[in-house]
Every structure is written in C-alpha cells, then in structure tokens.
Computed example of a mutant assay.
Amino acid sequence: MDDARDRDAGGRARSARPRDGLGRPLAYGAPGVERQPEGVVRSPAETVREAQRLLDAGMPFHAHEVFEDAWKSGPRTAAPLWRGLAQLAVGLTHAARGNTVGGARLLRRGAAGIAEFADGDGPAAAPDTYGMDVPGLVRWARALAPRVEGGGPAVDAAREAPRLAGEA
C-alpha cells in the first residue's frame, strides 16, 4: 500500500484534488471550491440554513454533505428524512452534470424517502420536519425527474434549487 495516499484522521482515503461547485474533481493545482468539512454536527435549523445556502449557490454536491452529516449525527428516527434530502441534492448534482439517468433515479429515490414525512406521518418519534416544506420538495423532485430523464433543457443547479422551507 502506498503510504503517500491522502487519508483523513480516521485513515479513510480522500482526494486532495480540488473540486468544482458540482463536486467534480479538477486538475491538481487548479483553483476549486472550498470543500465542505465532514462530520460537522449542526442543529436541524443550522443544517437547513447551510444546505439552503449551498443549494442557492449552485452547489448541491456540497449541500448533500451537510444533509449526510445530519443523517449520521442526528436521531435515528430523523435519518430517513436527512438521507432522502441528501439523495435529492445528489440527484440535482447529477442532473446538473448531465447524468440524466442517475439524476432522475436519485431525485425519485429521494422523493420516495421523504414522502413519508410529507403529511407529518413519519415515524412516531420524528414527525418534525424542521420547518421544511416536505410536500413541496416531493413535488419539486417528482416534476424535475422526468424532465431530466427526457433530456429536456440543461439543469442549472442554482436556478432550479428547491426551497427547503417553501417560498420565501
């Protein structure tokens, strides 16, 4: 094994290559977007606020990492909600990268994952959706998926980012 490989403090492999706003690796030395730190524990409100900021900036790949942190650090009962939101963000990432099959698939998977929370009928211990418009997010993903899959107009990640808390 090559000991010069880039690893985090836990020994997991990571890539030191810079990345663009959609998480695509760039050439070493190229200017990139600052990486989202992993393993950050945030309150649900902080998670929603930071993810929305990243979505609005056209950085859904980075927003997915924020949702992933919430999914892994929060209560188990809320994990399906955060996991589904992470899948929506990755679906938007793939759609913006031009991966129509993967984008549509992840948008549908994420919508299905959060749909149980759409009517406040999620797991008994986690009906809280932290102020998010889950029914609106499900509608957004289900409307975007067929357009992505059908090869419609290119997806602009910033312009088509969902509003997590509904219309402002």
Score class of each variant (00 low, 15 high):
R19F: 03
D56H: 01
G84D: 11
G120L: 10
M1F: 05
V101Q: 08
P146D: 05
A165V: 01
G74L: 15
R42M: 13
R147F: 02
Q52P: 04
L54S: 06
A118Y: 03
R5D: 00
V40R: 09
V41K: 07
A111Q: 07
E46V: 05
A141P: 04
M1G: 14
R7L: 11
R163N: 10
Y130V: 11
D20G: 02
A95E: 06
R159M: 01
L54A: 08
L164F: 08
A161C: 14
Y28T: 11
W82I: 02
E34P: 05
S73T: 15
F67R: 01
V148K: 04
R83T: 06
A86N: 03
V90M: 10
L144T: 09
K72T: 15
A145V: 01
S43A: 03
A141G: 13
G84R: 02
D133T: 04
M59A: 09
E116C: 02
R163I: 11
H62M: 15
D156E: 12
G11P: 01
G103A: 06
R147W: 10
L144R: 07
A96Q: 09
G11A: 04
P37H: 01
G74Q: 06
A143E: 15
A141R: 05
T100G: 12
P80M: 15
E68T: 07
D56G: 10
G39R: 03
R12S: 09
Q52L: 00
D121Q: 15
A118V: 02
G151R: 05
R139E: 13
A143T: 04
R24S: 14
A118G: 09
A30I: 11
L22R: 04
P25R: 07
A16Y: 05
H94E: 08
R42T: 11
P80E: 12
A111F: 01
G32E: 07
A57D: 15
D69S: 04
P80A: 12
D8P: 00
E50V: 11
G152R: 03
A13H: 14
F61M: 12
A13T: 15
G10R: 05
G120I: 13
E149W: 10
L54K: 06
G110M: 03
G110R: 00
G136D: 02
G39M: 07
A45C: 06
G39Y: 03
H64M: 13
L81H: 03
S15Y: 06
D69M: 07
A111I: 05
P135N: 12
T93L: 08
